[in-house]
Design a protein around this nucleic acid. Sequence first.
DNA 1: TAGGTTAGGGAAACCGGTTTCACAACAAAA
DNA 2: TTTTGTTGTGAAACCGGTTTCCCTAACCTA
Lengths: 342, 342
Amino acid sequence: MKVTIQDIAKAANVAKSTVSKVLNDSPKISKETKTRVREIMEQMNYTPSSIATRLAKRSSHNIGMLIDMARESEYMNPFFLNIISGIESVIGPMKYELTIANMQQDDPERNVINRLVRSGRIDGLIANNAIMSEDMVKTLNSLDFPFVTIGEFHSFPVPWADYDNAEGGRMLTGHLLDEGYRDIAFIGGEPLERIFTKRHQGYRQALLEAGIPYREDRTIHGVADENHGYQAVLELLRSDHPPDSLVCMNNYSAFGALKAIQQAGIAIPGEIGIATFDDYPFSPHTNPPLTSLFIDTFQLGATAGRMLIEVMNQPDLPYPSLLLQPKLNIRESTLKRKAGLE
Amino acid sequence: MKVTIQDIAKAANVAKSTVSKVLNDSPKISKETKTRVREIMEQMNYTPSSIATRLAKRSSHNIGMLIDMARESEYMNPFFLNIISGIESVIGPMKYELTIANMQQDDPERNVINRLVRSGRIDGLIANNAIMSEDMVKTLNSLDFPFVTIGEFHSFPVPWADYDNAEGGRMLTGHLLDEGYRDIAFIGGEPLERIFTKRHQGYRQALLEAGIPYREDRTIHGVADENHGYQAVLELLRSDHPPDSLVCMNNYSAFGALKAIQQAGIAIPGEIGIATFDDYPFSPHTNPPLTSLFIDTFQLGATAGRMLIEVMNQPDLPYPSLLLQPKLNIRESTLKRKAGLE
DNA sequence: TAGGTTAGGGAAACCGGTTTCACAACAAAA
DNA sequence: TTTTGTTGTGAAACCGGTTTCCCTAACCTA
């Protein structure tokens, strides 16, 4: 039924090793033979079995992307396709494929590693730093298996690509300061969450540079969803001197904050300013439009892809890592407070 | 280096065929041998090569998802991870993997088919109906290759899963009518676009049922992005009697419309109501919050996955297809016009 | 013209599994 | 006791390619 290399060999009256060499454009085959064999392939509509090729070549030509779908759904949804597209844009032209795998929270890591890595399904792995445990890193390293994390990884030297979250925190906070805000709260993020610590660090840095003392009670920890943003603002508003502005961990938490502030009848940006990380495609459309920190997630994916290829080709390279710079999109939600102060 | 089935066979002092049978839990192997061999596998940390297995079993155990990343990026971004998760939720437990492949616009279809299908990389395909040309369907059918499209497919009998777009159009329009709106415009969508025709058909149906004549000039065709929504509203407002409400093809076009209306100083929903397809996660957060038609994209993915498995197992089944029902999320942007009329 | 290169292609082993079939050993039936 | 059946295992072919190594013919060089 399906036409194989044997059929081609028979039809062309050559050995199948010769056909294989034609497929790989070996210099040991004459021009004439090549064109003849190729014509026959064309005629017989032959496509080599990639499975067989991979077995023989001992390479799956497949890149794995590992995510925790249930958990990341909220957070990555708006960007996921961009990241994937970015990865594909670099690995696709190199004839690699992309396999998306789900890692459930209850999945013992060994399981994932076995299923994907040791079984030879993939040649390299890209994963969010959130699901990359240290154990997993150790196991991957012990197998000499190439991988890159999306998101900075501090506890270990591994190759990673990320946006500069600390700088982002500085930019957002600095922008609010520039606009005349002085009492800036930080909403969302768990204390031990990696991405939170970086962002928060930039926030503190900007305050420090502006000579404004950091206040513990101005950071409202939590999962950074809409509900938390909402509750956080309610909590802040209960105090005698609520902050005059907010930096939110992401758009959802900013939405919650927005809602709470509006319900309280407080003017944005008149009385309170809001800036947020992660410029989701809809943040220009809120009321008022949200000043937010844009991250080119396509670039992030592409960078991770490039790094992975690099690591795969030169396994002995020192761990590369790359910080991309975010971009501040200034919108109405942080319009000058100065005006009101004067 | 890597431990193979041979190594296990040698260590267990059995033939490799026996090891293979243990792997597949063949009833022909005795309990004792099974446990003994399994212990050795455990000890030697053996994981079978999935590539070899696939070659021998003539099945890749891999499902392909084909999309045009560049083109779909805008439209599918907010849902993509959900769809993927849905697919994974059904194929994952059946030990299938998911390969995401990009189909560029300039890619001749034969290329994709060869690369993915004839090379044996995937056992089944899921694709958006937008990129499934009739030629592609024909080729896939001629290869007896199982596939499912996400999105209704009319020109051909193929298995597909979709939301009921016509019913959605009816629901949105019907809702506006219920609220007292009478002159409803439809914004966005190209005349030949499949998804548009269905949605528009529901819109017309609702008008018909309400005894309101359909007006050609109330449909503003276009690509359904923010800019088009914006321009469309400008155009509508130029007329002497602008419509009193809008149904938008998607959230982006609704955003554009929103912006144009607000800039013109027209009240929503006081003077004009807006309802839109596709309840993006941020439509509750616009100003005013957008009434929109929710589509459970996880379910859509899961349904497509289930159908594909079904088609793969029983190729001779008549083409199944499934319409899921959308859900109307009523928000402020369509509050009763009746009030204003009385 | 002998000896050494080089170019082109074939045979066979191999990648790591699966599957078919033969067969030995033992049990049950006649 | 012979026949028939059953159970458990192994040998070898196979999946569809790649790679190594060898061979032959033609071409060079002295």
